[in-house]
Amino acid sequence: MSKIYNLKREVEKPVRLTGGHRLCAGCGAGVVVSGVLRALDKEDRAVVVNATSCLEVSTFMYPYTAYMDSYIHSAFENSAATCSGVEAAYNALKRRGKVDGAVKFITFAGDGGTYDIGFQSLSGAMERGHDMVYVCYDNEAYMNTGIQRSSSTPRFAGTTTTPIGSVGQGKKQNKKDLTEILVAHNIPYVAQTAPIGNFKDLHTKAYNAIYTEGPCFLNVLSPCPRGWDYPMAKLAEITKLAVDTCVWPLFEVEEGVWHLSYTPKKKLPVEDFLRPQGRFRHMFQKGNEWMIKEAQQYVDQKWERLLEHTSA
């Protein structure tokens, strides 16, 4: 990639995630995965790894693979270890003259496969320092099994295991800050991004992650029209609102140095992001104003902290 991002040039590249996969219409995962893979240089080969998830069951349903590159899925909780195994094989075979040429190793896992069940595997692979990229497409719940809460699900969100009832008010806990935990691994590159605008942010970060040597981590917001309960055509709008309310700030941490990638011209109130989504509907009922207030306080507090990191 030349230094200057050019959408026209990028979309001209052959796709690496083809049509014909079985993700729901309007699924953010398809957008995120094709967006990340687009950052690969045309001539470079890749091995793509998936954790069990909506993405996996939809993109490699026998005999249909939607990947143009080699691909492996093993289980739900081990995608980072799996990627590290492919990288280890590459090193060994290269040393022995059995493979040549550059090959990139890219894992995609959902938030469940990353924040929760695959967390140990991820932490281990990052610590060992494999030359790989781990991409979490974060749709904030276990979607494949029918929208159960994960540690990535935001507070108050209704899911099938945090339902709204006469007593239940959705998820009780705040979202785990996984990106920051990955920063604490002291790996060369960590970034948080989302599919917005002309994809410059997502593309550049994916490129940095792929072409920085060593373990790199991307956390990408990936709206799920089914689980979030919004009209499927509104993917771009929902994502933009997540960013402009600072619910999902865009930033990167390069060799331990934090950079803020985007500051909203006007930081929108969090309710702008919450209102269009069915999973937060109860927050707008009379008497529940405190929920929105507390959600706002949490976002403000996290945003302030991020500003401290990035302005230091």
Binding site: I72, S84, G85, A88, Y90, N91, S121, G124, R128
Partner: peptide
């Protein structure tokens, strides 16, 4: 030996590494 010796964080990852590496074309 010139084996790629992967000191994983669990046996779960040990077998995961073997699976992936073997699929990649390596003897594990």
């Amino acid at each position: 030996v010139n084996t790629e010796y992967v000191t994983v964080e669990s046996e779960h990852s040990s077998m995961s590494v073997c699976i992936a590496a073997q699929a990649a074309g390596a003897r594990t």
